[in-house]
Design a protein around this nucleic acid. Structure first.
Length: 669
DNA sequence: ATACAACCTG
DNA sequence: CAGGTTGTAT
């Protein structure tokens, strides 16, 4: 829900289990920043993207002359730095003592690494805290008070939040009345623990992934001749002995812009390859490149697999939007080589996997599928243009809409949780350092409960724009009104491309459950069938029973509106038949029944279940219909219908008659 | 201010 | 069924 919550939950338990399997190969500085930090922020997205974000933000805080960021940001962060030392102990097991915070001045290497990192960590923690907290409560003018107030206000804030949570939760679930009412609280605890556990697992997976990545990098770099020329940039002269250090400096150093660092690493890599190419046959450098790609791919695959196995056999959902977002923008920056590498072989399989995520069997053998059964949903798949560049992309990007038959294989109530993180990693990890992130002022940075909501919307918007109005833009560079051209270094793009091709190589990543941008006719059909069970579904119910729908405000409203319309029809029918009964001279309510033969039922069934073969309408629905009809009859017979709001009493009764929607509705329509 | 439900209309 | 309006609760 919010950032502070997982903090309390995770920190104690999470830290313990992190401790014991911290990889030894992990470089200290790297590890520290990666894993010692409070986990609160990680609940909001992938670890990697969070890290990148943090790096960027910490860098921002230091770099006062950074482009449009106003002085207030810098001042704020400076203030926070002071409070950090004293307030740290409340939230963090102060493993970093009161570190001297030297704003901006410290060049890498001047400070001892540990001190520097500690100072940096303090800053980062503060920034995270600020981001997590309400911005408004942060506006103390008096900097001296901050020291003492910070703690109090934070605690108060968290307490407040906690209360809100506790108050809201039962109310929220009160909505789905009926049978499950009694088991909800325990569910709550369980899900809490479950979530905690899941997060831990994710973290472990990420640790392993990062370790593997680091190992691979080290491997590759150690093979190489350490000597290489610099690129003319001054900072390139700083030659890391190992890639680990290099990586570490990526995530820790603040005196250099992240993008530049990122770029530098890639540039170094490239340069090394170039140098190697002079010395060795050209093929060797290409081999090296391929090896690097494959190793990276394998590492990621391993991680994904692990996480994937821990989640249900359910699908990892990589939405069509993912393809959309990754293709037009990212693939533009993709190195041609990597494009060709992937577009030749993997494409058909990938297409098919994206289009036809079938059922469980599909997850086990994706390559066994025959490529011929394509549907019109092919438009979902973004073909990476081999020769024809962009014009051919635009139509493909268009809308993922006409995807019928969207089978989902979710077995649990929170099917998206884990996969969302991966999704986020794959989608916005690259994407965020690609362009979106640096453009966002800190205040814009998401603390929203839904980790993917905002960027998804942004991407959805972009793809719409791309498809409809502009046709395509060579570079959809404007996000948040800030151009990112100078931030999107080619090296960064290459990495994105690599990650994308990794995603393409990985069968799991290609599998998805079609997170829909919008609601499809099959969704409507499903909603109608669900109406037989629930007339007043809560938004939670809707979310759990439409796992393939990417929920945002609009979608939720639409779904709610659907059910509103269903109710409208339902009540209209009820009133109509009740009046008819009165006209017909029915004198006793008990003479009014609703059976499957009833005209009323036929009307309802025709409306909600036109293709009758779909579904056996539950008996409970007949009961509810009968009750409703009785209510209407009684009210009308008692001439209560003169009261303009006479129906409200009936609604109140009926809304309590909802029953649970069967699990099958989660999995398939 | 926001979200939702009902209502009305087309 | 969607769009718009209104009333209500948070």
């Amino acid at each position: 829900m919010n950032l502070s919550h997982p903090d309390q939950n995770m920190h104690g338990s999470g830290e313990g289990c992190l401790e014991d399997d911290k990889p030894d190969v992990m470089l200290p500085c790297f590890r520290r920043n990666m894993y010692d930090e409070p986990l609160s922020s990680y609940s909001n997205g992938s670890i990697i993207s969070q890290l990148l974000r943090k790096t960027i933000h910490s860098k921002r805080a230091l770099d006062e002359s950074h482009f449009y960021l106003s002085s207030s940001t810098a001042a704020d962060s400076g203030q926070e730095d002071q409070s950090s030392v004293s307030s740290k102990d409340s939230t963090v097991e102060a493993s970093s003592p009161g570190a001297h915070v030297s704003t901006g001045a410290s060049l890498e290497g001047e400070l001892p690494m540990t001190d520097h990192l500690q100072a940096k960590r303090a800053r980062v923690e503060n920034i995270i805290r600020v981001m997590a907290g309400s911005p408004n409560s942060r506006q103390h003018g008096d900097s001296e008070k901050v020291d003492t107030d910070a703690k109090d206000t934070r605690e108060a804030r968290e307490a407040h939040r906690e209360n809100k949570r506790k108050q809201r939760l039962p109310q929220h679930q009160e909505h789905s009345v009926g049978a499950p009412a009694s088991r909800r609280p325990s569910d709550n605890c369980n899900t809490k623990d479950e979530e905690c556990h899941k997060l831990k697992e994710q973290l472990h997976s990420m640790q392993r992934l990062l370790r593997q990545l680091q190992e691979k990098f080290l491997q590759v770099y150690n093979q190489e001749d350490p000597e290489h020329h610099d690129r003319g940039e001054a900072d390139v002269a700083i030659e890391p002995d190992t890639l680990g250090e290099n990586l570490a400096s990526h995530y820790t150093s603040s005196d250099d812009d992240f993008e530049r660092k990122h770029g530098r690493a890639s540039a170094e890599c490239k340069d090394r390859m170039k140098a190697a190419g002079y010395l060795a046959p050209q093929r060797e450098s290409q081999n090296l490149q391929e090896t690097l790609k494959q190793e990276l791919s394998r590492a990621v695959n391993d991680c994904v697999e692990r996480v994937f196995k821990k989640v249900s056999p359910a699908g990892l959902d990589l939405s069509p939007q993912q393809h959309m977002c990754s293709s037009p923008e990212i693939s533009l920056g993709v190195d041609r080589k990597s494009q060709q590498a992937t577009s030749t072989q993997e494409q058909p399989q990938d297409e098919e996997a994206a289009v036809k995520p079938r059922s469980l069997e599909y997850y086990e053998s994706s390559e066994a599928q025959s490529p011929q059964d394509q549907t019109e949903a092919l438009s979902l798949v973004v073909r990476k243009p081999a020769v024809v560049p962009l014009s051919s992309v635009a139509p493909a990007v268009k809308r993922p809409y006409p995807v019928h038959q969207t089978p989902f294989q979710f077995n649990y109530s929170t099917p998206l949780h884990d996969s969302q993180i991966l999704e986020h990693l794959l989608k916005y990890g690259p994407h965020s350092n690609f362009g979106g992130l640096p453009c966002m002022p800190p205040s814009m940075d998401r603390t929203s409960p839904d980790p993917v909501d905002l960027p998804w919307d942004a991407i959805a918007m972009r793809s719409k724009v791309t498809s409809s109005h502009l046709g395509h833009q060579p570079r959809p560079s404007a996000l948040g009104g800030v151009t990112v051209d100078n931030l999107c270094l080619p090296h960064v793009k290459i990495e994105c491309g690599e990650l994308q091709s990794m995603a393409e190589r990985n069968p799991y990543m290609s599998l998805n459950v079609h997170i829909q941008e919008g609601l499809t006719p099959s969704h409507l059909k499903k909603a109608k069938l669900m109406f037989f069970y629930t007339r007043y579904p809560s938004s939670n119910v809707l979310k759990t029973f439409f796992p393939d729908v990417k929920f945002n405000r609009c979608i939720t409203s639409q779904l709610i509106k659907w059910f509103s319309n269903f109710r409208e029809f339902y009540y209209i029918q009820m009133e109509k038949f009740a009046r008819q009964a009165i006209v017909d001279g029915v004198s006793d309510v008990k003479d009014i029944t609703v059976s499957r033969d009833s005209e009323l039922f036929r009307a309802l069934n025709m409306h909600y279940n036109k293709a009758n073969d779909f579904h056996q309408v539950p008996d409970r629905f007949l009961e509810v219909a009968e009750i409703t009809l009785h209510e209407f009859y009684n009210a009308i017979a008692a001439t209560k219908d003169s009261d303009p709001s006479w129906k409200k009493a009936i609604y109140k009764v009926i809304c309590k008659l909802d029953s649970d929607v069967p699990e099958e509705f989660k999995t398939s329509s």
